[in-house]
């Protein structure tokens, strides 16, 4: 028996979202189970079955979010830009 993680797409163009898993002895039955358990009401336009063993998980917080200052990558760092524009606009008004 093998565990397959099930991903579902609910509408064309949507991302594949993890919805759960099924246990089956092989791909054929896994397909049947996945449809019966995760799309009985036609919720899926597409299902992905991935053997659990094939999933490589990274859950290490230090690795994913190292404590390094990274505000320069985010919009917040550019709040000052708004002030710059305001300042320039005012200066422009003086000149004319």
């Amino acid at each position: 028996m093998q565990i397959y993680e099930v991903f579902r797409q609910e509408r064309e163009g949507d991302p594949m979202v993890h919805v759960g898993n099924v246990q089956a002895p092989g791909d054929d039955l896994a397909r049947q189970y996945a449809r019966e358990v995760y799309s009985r009401r036609g919720e899926a336009t597409r299902l992905w079955l991935v053997p659990r063993a094939a999933i490589e998980e990274i859950g290490d917080a230090y690795f994913l979010r190292p404590p390094i200052e990274r505000s320069y990558r985010m919009g917040e760092a550019y709040r000052v830009t708004v002030q710059k524009r305001r300042q320039l606009a005012q200066e422009g008004a003086h000149e004319s």
Binding site: N21, V22, Q23, Y33, R40
Partner: peptide, 16 residues
């Protein structure tokens, strides 16, 4: 019948 199938389906999810 559909309700019964749902309930058994719920059991399947929870047993996993």
């Amino acid at each position: 019948t559909a309700k019964i199938q749902d309930e058994v389906g719920h059991a399947q999810l929870l047993y996993r």
